[in-house]
């Protein structure tokens, strides 16, 4: 358990003073690589300030594996991703609200529980088609995203829309959208001047 987490997550603690994230991390985690320009989402800044929202350096590996499996089902087949992409883009990003990652973890746990109970296997063991069926079966694809809503609405908000957000703000969607450097991704300073199909800058 990192010292940083003990310092920063006390507000979300349970009766024993341990947070959900503490518990998850105590089960073992993977390291989220440092985000780098052009790939990661950690903004570079020399305007230093408090770092209360910095992503934890460790994320439970089973959550990364589950989220990656879900991404493979949610994204078009033409989009290729791996666990490091999910670890960086989803779990390594700045939380849009404090506590967002805790809620994402909780939603993933609910989804995993549902998969085991109704589909008989953990999510990564299901085929992409069965993973999509799982999300439909839970009502996620028919629900509105609500951070404080029903189980399905929360999964829609924290899991499905997180995946969609990182897809549409990443160059891996460029071939689909025709936006070489999509909004939310650093690198537009070069892309905005470039002619189509790799032409010369204007």
């Amino acid at each position: 358990m990192s010292e940083k987490i003990e310092q920063t997550d006390t507000s979300a603690g349970d009766a024993e003073g341990q947070t959900r994230r503490d518990t998850l991390l105590s089960l073992g985690g993977v390291t989220v690589g440092a985000a780098i320009y052009g790939y990661g989402v950690r903004p570079l800044t020399n305007n230093a300030g408090t770092e209360e929202d910095e992503p934890d350096e460790s994320v439970p590996s089973d959550h990364v594996e589950t989220m990656t499996a879900l991404a493979e089902a949610v994204y078009p087949a033409a989009v290729s991703i791996d666990e490091s992409y999910i670890a960086n883009r989803v779990f390594g990003r700045t939380e849009p609200r404090p506590g967002h990652m805790d809620e994402l973890y909780a939603s993933l746990e609910k989804l995993e529980d549902y998969a085991r109970a109704r589909f008989g296997d953990p999510i990564p063991a299901l085929s992409p088609k069965r993973r999509r069926a799982l999300l439909r079966s839970m009502g996620v694809t028919e629900s509105h995203p609500k951070p404080d809503g029903t189980q399905a609405e929360r999964v829609r908000f924290y899991v499905l829309n997180d995946l969609i957000y990182v897809l549409f703000t990443s160059p891996i969607s460029s071939d689909l959208t025709g936006i070489e450097n999509p909004p939310g991704h650093p690198g537009g300073r070069e892309a905005y001047r470039r002619a189509p199909n790799g032409g010369e800058n204007q």
Binding site: T45, N47, E52, R93, R97, P145, Y165, T169, G184
Partner: peptide, 18 residues
């Protein structure tokens, strides 16, 4: 707004569910 708030705003701006 804290520096962290400034960074959070990027995703809040882009997501229609915020």
């Amino acid at each position: 707004l804290s520096p962290a708030d400034h960074r959070r705003r990027l995703e809040q701006w882009l997501r229609s569910d915020f």
